[in-house]
Nucleic acid binder design. Sequence first.
DNA 1: GCGAACGTTCGAACCGGTTCGAAGCATAGC
DNA 2: GCTATGCTTCGAACCGGTTCGAACGTTCGC
Lengths: 341, 341
Amino acid sequence: MATIGDVARAAGVARSTASYALSGRRSVSDEVRERVRRAARELGYTPNAGARTLATSQTMVIALLARFLPDEFAPAMLQYIQGVSDSALEAGYDILLSSDPYGPAALKRITDSRMADGVVLLNVAEQDDRLPVLRSAPQPGALVGLPGDCTGVDVFDLDFEEAGRAMVEHLDALGHRELILVSQPEHVIERGGAYVWRLQNAALETAAARGVTLHAAYGSSSQPDIGRELHALLEAHPGATGLLLNNEAAAAALPTVMHERALSAPADLSVVGRYSDEFARSFSLPFSSIDAAPHRLGRMAVRQLVRRIEHQPTADGPHVVRLITPELLDRGSTAPPPDRQ
Amino acid sequence: MATIGDVARAAGVARSTASYALSGRRSVSDEVRERVRRAARELGYTPNAGARTLATSQTMVIALLARFLPDEFAPAMLQYIQGVSDSALEAGYDILLSSDPYGPAALKRITDSRMADGVVLLNVAEQDDRLPVLRSAPQPGALVGLPGDCTGVDVFDLDFEEAGRAMVEHLDALGHRELILVSQPEHVIERGGAYVWRLQNAALETAAARGVTLHAAYGSSSQPDIGRELHALLEAHPGATGLLLNNEAAAAALPTVMHERALSAPADLSVVGRYSDEFARSFSLPFSSIDAAPHRLGRMAVRQLVRRIEHQPTADGPHVVRLITPELLDRGSTAPPPDRQ
DNA sequence: GCGAACGTTCGAACCGGTTCGAAGCATAGC
DNA sequence: GCTATGCTTCGAACCGGTTCGAACGTTCGC
C-alpha cells in the first residue's frame, strides 16, 4: 500500500509538503498541489488510519455499546443501531460496535486504548455499571435511556412518564372508566429498566387523579406465556374496556388472543401500545400506539456526541437531558367504550 | 493517560524492556517483570490502539459490512450481528460496523486505511458490488450469503436448495398433492437475493419429480399487503393442503389470516416456514420451520476469518464454501391432508 | 585465568502520518 | 543596494508502541 512517503517521492516533494497539499492546512503552490494530488490518485493512496490517529489523536470512530438482552425486542434494537449508524456516516465517523455482555470491561478497554472519539450507550439502566467508566473516560458520552444520575453525559430518551399520562388521558377522554396496563416483566425492572415503572406510575397517578380504575400488571416477554396471561387478565377484569400495552410481546400476541375471545378493537376493547413504528409496520399491529422512536433517539445521541467531539460552541455548555414527547399514532383501535347496562 | 514510557520510567527500565516484560516476547528477569507489571497496574496503563496497530500492523478489529435493506427482517439481521459480535469477542477482536448504503465505498476506505484485519460481509447478493473490492483488499474476507462467484473468499450460507427439497419432500411424504409456496417479493431477487429462486427452483423440481402440484408465488414483504395476498392465494387454490413460506412477513401474517378463514393447522392446512428460530420464538409462530440459523452463520464466518487472519494451518488451504444443511423443526403444524371426497 | 555462552537490559530504528520552525527565494519598499 | 515581507518548501521532531542488534555482567568450562 502506498504511504505518503511514496506519494511525496512520486511528486518530487517532501513528506510534509505532500501532507499539506492533501490536507490544505497550509498553502501550497497550485502546481505542487496538483502534482501531489495526481500522485496520490495514481498510487491509490489512502492514509493509514492508525498512523493518523497516533499523530492527531483523532480516530473518527464512535463506540457503540449495545446490550443484547434476552428479552429486548430485536426490531427496536436494530433501529437504534441504524439510527446511530446512519448519522455517524453522515458526520464522517465509523462505528465500533461492542456488545459488552460482561459488564463495563470492554468499554474501559475501548476508552483507555483510545479506539474512539466518543461513546454511545444503548439500553442504559437506572444504575448502569457502564456509567462510572464512561464518566471517568476522556471521551464524551451520549446515552439512549435515562439513568438515575445524568451528570457528565448527554441523555436522550422517550418521555415515558408523559407516555403513561397520554395513554390514560386519551382513553379517559373517550369515556373509559376501567383500564388494564400490561408492562414488561418484573425482571426487566430489576435489571434497571426504570422506564417500565416510570410509565406505570405516571399512568396510575393520572388514572387516580381522574377517578379511572387502572389494573397494572407485569407480563412475560416471551411467547406463548404472554398470550395465556392476556387471556387471564381479560378474564379477571371483565369490566375493563381499555388496554394499555408497554410490552412488545403482548402487542404481538394480542391479535390472536382477541380473535380467540371474539373481541375486536375498538368495538369491544380500545387498545393503545408503546413500541416502535417499525415494529408496528412489520407485524401489522392494528393498534394505535406511541412511537418509541428508536431511530430518532439514536440519531439525536450521535449528533450531540459529534458536536461535543468537535467542540462546537453549542455543545461546550452544560450536559443535556432530552426526553422526547411521545406522539400517539392513531390507527383506529380506540373509541368510546361499548354501552353496558 | 499513561504511556509505556511512563511505565518504564516508574519501573526504572527502558521502554523496550517494559514492552518485553508486558508482552513476554523476550525473557525478562522475574524481578523486573514484577516491577513493570506493578507500575502498569498502578498507572492504569492500557496500550494505545493506534500506536500498536502502527507498529504491528495488527488491528484486532473485524469489519462487519451489513446492509440494512428496507424489507430485510430485523430479527434475523440482529441475529447475524449477534453471532458475529459474540464470536469476535471470544476471539479477542472488536467489530467495526459499517452499513454501507452507498455501495462499496466504505468497504474500500476501511480496507485501504487498514482499520481492520478481516472483513465479514452480510446479506451478500448474487452479484455483490462489494466483492470486487474485497477480493483486491489485502485482508481476508468471509461472507454470509452465497454469491455467484466465490473465488478468494470463504462463504457460509444455508443450503436453500436443500431447504426447498426438504419442505416439499416432507409434505409429499405426508400425502399432500397440492402445495403453495410463498416467496419473498420479486424485487428481492432483482437486487441479488438469489436464495429466493434457489429455494423455489429446488422446490419446483422436487415437486415435479414427485408428481406434486406446486403453485409458486411472490409475496409482499410488508403488512398488511401480504395478508391480503395470502387470502387471495388460498382463495385461488382451494385444493391446496400445504403451504410453504419463504417470506417472514407471510409467516407473521398467517395466523391472523387463518383465523379469519377459520382454518387451523394442521387439521385444514399443513404449514412449513423458513425463518430464524429466534423469530419463531418471539412471535410464537406455531409453524414447523426450517431454522435459518443466522447466529450460527455469523459465528462460522468469524471463526473462519480469525483462522485466516492468524494463519493457522487449517486456514491456509483453499477457500471454503459451506452450506449448512437445513433442519426442519417440527412444531406440529404438518399432518396428512384432510380427506376430501 | 581466560574465552565462550548465556541471560538480561538498553538504545535506536521503525511503523506512517502531522506539525512546527526555519530556510530559501523572489518581490516590494525605502 | 539593502532590508523587510511573504510565499513556498524542507527537515526534524513527535505521537506510542514493537523489535532488532549490541552491550553488559555472570557463570561455566577448560
